[in-house]
Every structure is written in C-alpha cells, then in structure tokens.
C-alpha cells in the first residue's frame, strides 16, 4: 500500500519508491532523510484540520514531514520489519 494509506502508528517498511514521481531535489532530500527501500517507517500524524495536510512519519530514528503527493510515491509493506539489509 502507499504511505498515504498506512494507518497511524503501524510499523512498516519501505517496499518501493517511485523516484520518477519526485523532482531531483525532492528525491535527494528524501534520501538524505534516510528514505530508501527497506527503511522502517511509521506514520505518526496527519496534519491539517480536514485531514488533507502533510503526514509526519518516523523514518529510522528521525521524524520527517512530507506532503501527500510525496507520500503517495512511497509504497510500504506492513508486517514484521524484515531487518533491512540496506
């Protein structure tokens, strides 16, 4: 499922990132935040009064915020966090 559909506070890991859906600089920033295939993620908060705001999620030990269009480019898988070889 996409990161946008991940229920809050359910540990998951990144399955696939559609880098082509992101601009080069946004892609670089996400990578610098530690987002990569295999990274552990957990959605923590949905922002915005009407729920259409950004998503705050935990990536490794960091908390990062991103808009839904970025989160939609990230496919995640729940289940036991298979300790990433990454």
């Amino acid at each position: 499922m996409r990161l946008t559909d991940l229920p809050l506070r359910q540990p998951a890991y990144v399955d696939l990132i559609d880098w082509n859906a992101l601009s080069a600089s946004d892609g670089q920033r996400l990578r610098e935040f530690g987002l990569c295939e295999g990274a552990s993620v957990e959605a923590l908060h949905h922002g915005g009064l009407l729920g259409r705001g950004p998503i705050a999620c935990k990536v490794g030990r960091m908390t990062v915020a991103m808009r839904r269009n970025h989160a939609a480019a990230i496919t995640v898988r729940t289940g036991p966090t298979e300790e990433e070889d990454a």
Binding site: T63, V64, M66
Partner: peptide, 9 residues
C-alpha cells in the same frame, strides 16, 4: 512546490 521537513526532537 512541496513540503519536506525534519521535525527535530
């Protein structure tokens, strides 16, 4: 553009 930001402790 987008919104990408670290949330510090």
């Amino acid at each position: 553009g987008g919104f990408l930001m670290e949330m510090p402790k």
